[in-house]
């Protein structure tokens, strides 16, 4: 392949592409520091909207709900995904292995609105109404494939001789998992957990459908704020959500860099 510098105009196009992608976000962050009440009229620098957002009881409640849902859903989904990945990668050949693998990853391709409607109908059909519990269960279902993929990738890349060596050195199956498989799998598990946490925090459609009054999460609350009229408060809340996401992704990136060489020698 020729070096990229050979293709004339490529860097200009790349710049246009990135501007298209990130300019709206930059504008959003910029106006979150607007002292004016109007979203698009610059009235000088101020952090009033952040203070206002912090003191808004509804926002506090929504953030709390989001954190509870994301934390519980991530924990449960990651545990299920880990067990599933272990069975599929280490369980040898069994009937329905390919089908299982397909079914676990299928939710990634199913349109979210379909899942949302299906889950909503399911809950009302069996008459289940646990408030936030319903939201958590719905989140677990779509978080599993996101947690599953990095865990399985890590397991597939792991040398099975390591587990045999542990068995050979008098470790029981449990000890082999505890002292060899689990520590080596940890970066995959953490990656899966972070991915499902971000996905859960970010989810809108399913939460909107399933969540009743009192189980409003942050994305749903932001949507309802927009319907009442745009204020820079929305920008401030969105910026904080963005910062949280970036923090998690950065943590994941640093972690995976640090542990990469333990697996690939």
């Amino acid at each position: 392949m020729l070096p990229v510098g050979h293709y004339r105009g490529l860097s200009a196009w790349t710049a246009v592409f990135f501007i298209f992608l990130y300019l709206p976000i930059v504008v959003l962050i910029f106006y979150s520091f607007n002292a004016n009440r109007m979203v698009m009229n610059w009235g000088g620098f101020g952090i009033d909207w952040y203070i206002k957002a912090f003191n808004n009881a509804d926002i506090q409640k929504a953030v709390w709900n989001s954190l509870v849902v994301a934390t519980v859903a991530t924990g449960v989904a990651t545990a299920i995904a880990t067990i599933g990945a272990l069975v599929l990668a280490r369980g040898g050949n069994f009937r329905g292995k390919t089908v299982s693998l397909g079914l676990i990853t299928l939710p990634l391709m199913v349109p979210e609105i379909v899942t949302a409607v299906a889950v909503l109908i399911f809950f009302s059909a069996i008459g289940m109404n646990l408030g936030l519990g319903n939201v958590i269960i719905a989140h677990i279902t779509f978080c599993i494939p996101f947690a599953f993929m990095p865990i399985r990738a890590r397991l597939e890349g792991m040398d099975t001789n390591l587990e045999q060596a542990a068995r050979d050195l008098y470790a029981s199956e449990w000890e082999t998992f505890r002292f060899v498989t689990m520590p080596l799998l940890m970066p995959g598990i953490v990656a899966g957990a972070m991915l499902s946490f971000v996905i859960s925090m970010d989810d809108f459609i399913i939460t909107l459908m399933v969540g009743g009054a009192g189980s409003t999460t942050l994305p749903v609350y932001i949507y309802s704020m927009i319907r009442r009229g745009l204020t820079p408060e929305i920008n401030a809340v969105s910026t904080m959500l963005l910062l949280a996401s970036i923090a998690i992704v950065t943590a994941y990136w640093i972690l995976s860099k640090k542990t990469q060489n333990t697996l690939n020698r």
Binding site: D159, N161, L162, Q164, A165, A166, R167, D168, L169, Y170, A171, S172, V180, P183, L184, T262, L263, R265
Partner: peptide
């Protein structure tokens, strides 16, 4: 017997040392 119940030990072709 399970491998951990046999008093034999193995030196693997690619060593299989625990990287962590």
């Amino acid at each position: 017997l399970e491998p951990n119940r046999r008093s034999v030990n193995t030196v693997f072709q690619h060593y299989a040392l625990f990287p962590h």
